[in-house]
Write a protein that binds this DNA or RNA. Structure first.
Lengths: 341, 341
DNA sequence: CTGTTAGCGCATTCAA
DNA sequence: TTGAATGCGCTAACAG
């Protein structure tokens, strides 16, 4: 019952022509008559032919596949980005292998190895929370496989990158909080190894300096931004005397959990403590009051990432096109940071 | 600069042995001496050998890859499930190609074709919102490629399935609302083509019957459960006179948006209108009041899905193992449905 | 425009 | 336990 797949041999034999002609007919090769091409396509369909990707990949020494490593699939930003990648990839005739590192360097290394063995034509990465070494990407670089980082990037002269201006975004959000009268702002953020967090912290600091607000080291909480840790930070905040007057979390989910815990203890948002997050997660609209946040276009970022890789793959071998692109963002002000006069 | 990959030929030549021996040494073949095996492994590593998956796949006529089609990546349930799949797959030596249908049959068909061409050893699917035909899965069935549906399934005698008891879950949640004194319950749900929605509706109805509450057809809203439509439904509800006394949405995000809109118009939750959702999305804990919902284990469901496929692939060719598995769930009662006495 | 020929890298028979 | 030989299905010179 398990009849073998039919190959171009079968259809060549059936038509009494050569396999090369069949192969050409199937791929829209320039040197082929419309008539035989049509004939080939028809009989191929009639016989239920399905091309064997492996044989083709093996022969052509390329896979038409782009590998993706992201920390997790389940943030709204990431799934937007992936959706954008998928769209652009299928429009460009590429497949995607999507993997998640689950925020650990260990899994990221494994994923990189798997994708390398699968001979992806290009690799797109957003780094895990705790990745320290870039060694697992060296094989790609050595082999001249285009490598692009997005969002959580690592500066590398051989790699392209797509980010937003995290420094500026954090600066804006901090300046906004200051404009609302906040002077003692807590910042909850992640591993400073990751550009997104270190740059936001830098922007946060600079906004203090520019507005003559003293920056206090003890106002910075480095966490993994899990719900549990967000709640813990809220509890630490509640123990402060005097209370800080604002919290800027580097992530909406973290901000939301913190907000909820603060409210549970009778804190009025934004009057006692103003709040802001990052990423414009759907949750930012659903909590009350609505969460001030930074929006940036995940879908477009994903599309652009693929586009850059495809362009690079279409270049001549020895002409490299490394570029860093910074996309725009938008400060979305909601009730959580708007103090009544 | 683009040095070619090293192959088993290179390492065979280097060691003055045959490629077959190298191939065997690399794969832990029984007929090989420990000594030469060790030698091969060492020099392979030293020379930086990477096996070529394509050649191997081509030769073995299998890919060690499982294809996945899900509606979207970005629900918390789905990413849990995918994380579970990834874990079990890598533990079992399988790769995953993950695709999303973005809730459209059209994309689902495309994805199925791509995965088929990529010769996945097995396929795991959660159906798109509007998929009507199963024709695009026939090639897999014809070719005896194991096919499993999960969560959003389609009954098919050749396919395995993993679900929860959606009927029972909806029954429980409805009975709970009734126990809180609700008698006029609106149900917001999705395309009844999908088992998850039709079965929940059935449970919803049965709970009415069993508690002698009249079921009203006009209380059922079929939507795509987007934020926009959820808000629209809330507005329709607000126009009712008398108001319904509860809303059961088939999805937490939908419930949350509905809740917010109701609150915006001065409705007290749960006293004027009680609310319940489905899936235990993180948002269900963050809205106020907390959302009563149904929890089921996405991660475990994903692990199980892969495990079933791997088992099936390890069976003898002509012995099929089709099974339907129903996992447990849990009713999580939060403030949104708890009426003060 | 079409056919001939020769591999891509690996796994597996068969023989030694 | 090892080696020689073959072919998985396809593509791309090269030669008509």
């Amino acid at each position: 019952m398990k009849d073998r797949d039919i190959t171009i041999y079968d259809i060549a034999k059936h038509l009494n022509i050569s396999t090369s002609t069949v192969s050409r007919g199937l791929k829209d090769h320039p040197a082929i008559s419309q008539k035989t091409k049509k004939l080939i396509l028809e009989t191929a369909k009639k016989m239920g032919y399905q091309s064997n990707t492996f044989a083709s990949n093996l022969r052509r020494q390329k896979t038409n596949t782009i590998g993706i490593i992201v920390p997790r699939l389940n943030s709204s930003f990431m799934s937007d980005a992936l959706a954008g990648m998928e769209k652009m990839a299928s429009d460009s005739g590429y497949n995607l292998i999507i993997t998640q590192s689950l925020e650990t360097e260990k899994k990221e290394i494994l994923n990189a190895a798997t994708l390398f063995n699968n001979r992806v034509d290009a690799l797109i990465v957003s780094l895990a929370y705790d990745t320290k070494s870039m060694a697992h990407f060296e094989p790609f670089i050595k082999k001249n496989i285009p490598l692009l980082f997005f969002d959580r990037v690592f500066p590398h002269k051989e790699c392209s990158a797509i980010t937003i201006d995290n420094y500026k975004a954090a600066y804006e959000i901090t300046a906004h909080l200051i404009s609302q009268g906040c002077k003692d702002i807590v910042h909850i953020t992640g591993n400073l190894l990751r550009n997104v967090y270190s740059e936001r912290l830098a922007g946060f600091k600079q906004a203090h300096a520019d507005h003559d607000i003293p920056f206090r080291e003890e106002n910075v909480f480095i966490t993994r931004m899990t719900p549990e840790e967000s709640i813990e930070v809220a509890q630490k905040i509640l123990n402060r005397n005097p209370l800080p007057d604002a919290v800027f979390a580097s992530n909406d989910l973290c901000a939301a959990h913190t907000m909820l815990e603060l409210k549970r203890h009778g804190i009025k948002i934004p009057d006692d403590i103003a709040l802001a997050g990052f990423n414009n997660d759907p949750v930012s609209k659903l909590v009350e009051p609505g969460l001030t946040t930074i929006y940036y276009k995940g879908f477009e970022m994903g599309e652009l990432a693929i586009q850059m890789m495809v362009n690079q793959l279409n270049q001549l071998q020895n002409m490299k096109m490394i570029q860093s692109i910074v996309l725009g963002h938008e400060l979305i002000i909601r009730q959580s940071s708007l103090r009544r006069k």
